[in-house]
Each structure stands twice: as C-alpha cells, then as structure tokens.
C-alpha cells in the first residue's frame, strides 16, 4: 500500500510540475532530434558554423543577437583572426573624444553583436509595425524551444488552407500562434553558400541556424551536461555509501 502511495505521490508531483501549454492557434511543433538534447549532448560543430553563417547573412538584417559577444564565436570554432574580422565589419559608439563628441569605431571581439536597429521603435518602423525579436534567447523564450524554431522556419505554406484569408503584409505559418506571422519566409533554397559544401536546402539552413541559436541561448550547455554526469555519478556513489553506513548503524535498532 505504501509503495502505491509513493508512486502516486510521485506521479502527482510530476503532473503538477509539468507546465500546462497554452495553445493559441499554432500547430504543435513536431519533435526533432538535436544532438545537443541527448543526456551526453554536444552541439554539432559543423552545424554551428553553418548556422552562424545563416544568421549573419540572412537573419542579422532584422534580428539582433545583443547578448552574445563576438569573442564568444571562438567557442564554436572561429579563429581569433576570423572573429576580429567579423567584428570589424560593424561599428559601435566610441568613448567621447576630447570635444565630447561620440564618434563611431569598428567593433572589437569584446563587443557584443551589433543590432540592426538602435531601438524597438526603429525596428518596428522598418518592419511594418512588427518587431523582429532579438534572437539571443529565442530558443529558451518559446515553448517547444528548438523544435518550435525549426518548425516555424520550415512552416511556411505556399497557399493557406481553404477558407483562410491572409491579411496584407502577413504570411501564413503553420506553427506560429494564430498562424499569421509578419515575417516573410526568410529561407530560400541556396540562399547561402556554405563553405563546407553542404547543400543549402531550406531544411538544412533551418536546422543549422536553430542549432546556432540554441548555442546562443545556452552556451554553457556542454559544460553543464558534462558536469552533471560527474555530479550524478559522484552522488550515486556517496548516497550508496551513506545507505550502507545507515543500515549498519541502524542494525541494532531494527
């Protein structure tokens, strides 16, 4: 009876704790296997590099990545020289000069990614009133995470389903809440020329940029899982030892 109670209690806890999804009109994103989702997960390094290229050449026109620093790219395989070059393409405000004027200077690796728009209002004005969100945390900020982002990018339909009218300036997307998204389909076949020769299909680019964005949101993921394995193994041994010690000490009471 007690065992049943314990299982029930555990199950009840699990139910209570799992977040209830608020559906809002978008289809549920299909599950997609990501190499970094596994217990021993690591990021697909090649995908990260290709994804960075997709971000830079496609997404960065409208979407910022302001929480990531250029130097962070060195963690995903870019060399110092490459990072300096990527940073130097953009300009940031310098310290005020002796006249008190703020001039612009090329970005250095220590700087954060420069956003395409100076503020939200400017971003909205340039995008028909819609705000292209910063992508630094987008994978953590949406229910469904990477599955959702990937589904969204590949979820545009040429024709909306029968009976659905798409308002001017909007696009039909199967997975976006409400199905009407202001962003036009951003990915086209061969839109990017990958350096490693991989064919740039929409599916491929979407996967790669999603992995890149997953890294951008959780750069600590690999270290976290590595540490987690060590901690759990350590705790299993320690708890096992403690159990044996407990039984020995309690032997004269039972």
């Amino acid at each position: 009876m007690n065992a049943i109670r314990t299982v029930l209690a555990a199950g009840v806890m699990a139910l209570l704790v799992s977040p209830a999804q608020a559906a809002g009109g978008g289809a549920h994103a299909p599950e997609h296997h990501w190499s970094h989702s596994d217990l021993f997960g690591t990021f697909d390094q090649a995908a990260l590099r290709r994804g960075a290229q997709v971000y830079k050449e496609v997404c960065s026109a409208c979407h910022g990545l302001r929480l990531v620093a250029y130097r962070n790219l060195m963690e995903i395989g870019f060399s110092e020289g490459e990072v300096k070059a990527i940073a130097a393409e953009k300009e940031v405000p310098a310290e005020p000069n002796d006249e008190g004027e703020v001039e612009m200077r090329p970005a250095i690796p220590a700087d954060k990614f420069v956003s395409p728009f100076p503020n939200e209002n400017a971003a909205r004005a340039a995008n028909g009133g819609a705000y292209p969100p910063d992508l630094s945390l987008i994978v953590k900020a949406r229910p469904g995470g990477a599955d959702y982002i990937h589904a969204l990018l590949t979820g545009y339909k040429e024709e909306p389903p029968a009976g659905v009218t798409v308002p001017d300036g909007m696009n039909y997307n199967e997975y976006f809440a409400g199905n009407m998204i202001a962003m036009a389909p951003p990915l086209f076949e061969d839109g990017v020329q990958f350096a490693d020769g991989t064919k740039a299909t929409v599916e491929q680019m979407s996967e790669d940029v999603t992995v890149f964005l997953a890294w951008a949101a959780e750069p600590e993921l690999e270290e976290r899982k590595r540490m987690g394995i060590k901690v759990i193994l350590f705790l299993l041994v320690l708890t096992g030892l403690l159990y044996v010690v407990k039984r020995r000490i309690w032997a004269d009471v039972h």
Partner: peptide, 19 residues
C-alpha cells in the same frame, strides 16, 4: 570494517564538499 566504511564515506563527502 564499519569504521573504514564510515571513514571512506566521510572522505568522499569531504571531497564533494570541496568540489
């Protein structure tokens, strides 16, 4: 045997604590 076990457990816990 019991003391050794307790010592081992204690040492393990101490290492864990430092970590």
């Amino acid at each position: 045997r019991r003391d050794f076990l307790q010592l081992a457990t204690g040492a393990f816990a101490a290492v864990g604590g430092a970590a």
